[in-house]
Amino acid sequence: MPAGSSRKRERQYEHVKEGAEKRGTSTGRAKEIAARTVNKERARSGEAKWAGKVSTRDPKSAPQRGGERSPSGPQGPTKDQLYEEAKKRNVEGRSSMNKQELREALGR
């Protein structure tokens, strides 16, 4: 966290970092995600010294978007993505499974 950050932003950083780690993200990547999220929120609220156009003009904040821009989307990976992963892991019966069954077979 930058020097002079508020306790609120420090709590937000820890919350985002822990959430990313719970989802299986590496510690380094979790820290990066948390820092970027907090920095964007600081820019949007006028707390940051510098703010990019995207940070200040984006209609929704990161938590409000809820994964809209994520490659896996807000609903997680697609059935095709799950199927490909099941194929790599040689999960038996994968061709007749629906999305939920694929998730369960992969332990998600």
Rank of each mutant, 00 (worst) to 15 (best):
E41N: 12
G52N: 13
E32C: 00
R44K: 15
V16Q: 05
S6N: 07
P59N: 12
G52H: 02
E41Q: 15
A51V: 11
T25P: 00
G46K: 11
E101C: 06
I33E: 10
E104T: 12
E101L: 00
E47N: 09
S70W: 08
G28N: 08
S70E: 10
S95K: 11
D80R: 13
K60V: 06
S26W: 03
R94H: 10
R7H: 07
A20S: 12
R7T: 13
P77Y: 00
R42W: 02
P71G: 07
S61V: 03
E92L: 06
K40M: 14
E41I: 01
E47T: 07
G28K: 08
R108P: 03
N98T: 05
A86Y: 02
S70Q: 04
Q64M: 07
G76D: 03
K40R: 14
V91R: 02
K17I: 01
R11Y: 04
E41R: 02
K17W: 09
A35G: 13
T56P: 07
N90I: 00
R9A: 14
K22N: 10
G19V: 06
D80N: 15
E92M: 03
K88F: 01
K31E: 15
G52W: 06
V91T: 06
A86K: 01
K79P: 02
N39I: 00
K79A: 13
E10S: 09
S96V: 14
G24V: 08
K17H: 10
N98C: 06
K88D: 13
K60C: 05
A35E: 09
A35W: 03
S72P: 00
R29K: 15
K8H: 07
G19E: 09
T25S: 10
A35Q: 14
A48N: 13
G67H: 03
R7E: 15
E85W: 04
M1W: 04
E10I: 09
R65V: 04
A3R: 11
S55Q: 13
K99E: 11
E101S: 06
K22T: 09
